[in-house]
């Protein structure tokens, strides 16, 4: 839980630094996806943690209360179900990266649908988010692989 709060705060701090220039990747959601892929026991708690984090994000940044909350909660629920349906041998870090990329795609599409692109600056902010999300996804994918190796050794 503390780690989730820290990741939310990291996302918030990055948005403060980038405000007016770019939207930051949804690091908080990605972290919870990481947890849901690794910790199959706490699915419901993860869904509502995602919801609360998203709601706070809406209060602080998006202004469309419930948008990020609903999408975050829905994505974690979907992740929990779909990840378990992937055969055990297929649950690689690349598969995990694919899930993260798909989640980002869903988020971008829904925000695009609700917010639209009101100006060149908003479009630029979306593009910067798209560019910066890939290193984040790769880092988390390798963290996932590294975490898997540690578990295997144990």
């Amino acid at each position: 839980m503390i780690q989730a709060v820290l990741f939310w705060f990291l996302q918030d701090v990055l948005q403060v630094l980038m405000e007016g220039w770019a939207y930051v990747p949804d690091i908080f959601l990605f972290y919870l996806m990481f947890r849901s892929a690794r910790n199959a026991e706490a699915e419901i708690a993860l869904i509502w943690t995602a919801f609360l984090g998203g709601l706070l994000w809406d209060f602080r940044w998006s202004g469309l209360f419930g948008l990020s909350a609903g999408i975050y909660g829905g994505i974690i629920g979907l992740m929990c179900i779909l990840w378990k349906r992937v055969p055990f041998t297929g649950r690689s870090h690349w598969m995990f990266a694919g899930f993260l990329a798909a989640a980002h795609g869903m988020l971008s599409l829904s925000r695009f649908f609700f917010f639209g692109v009101a100006s060149k600056e908003v479009a630029f902010a979306f593009v910067v988010q798209l560019i910066t999300v890939f290193p984040v996804i790769l880092m988390l994918a390798f963290a996932f692989a590294s975490d898997g190796e540690k578990r295997h050794v144990r």
């Binding site: 699915e43 509502w48 919801f51 709601l55 609903g70 999408i71 909660g73 829905g74 629920g77 179900i81």
Partner: peptide, 11 residues
């Protein structure tokens, strides 16, 4: 629970 979170968010 996933669907409920989406529904609450939408409401």
């Amino acid at each position: 629970h996933g669907l409920a979170s989406v529904a609450v968010g939408f409401l």
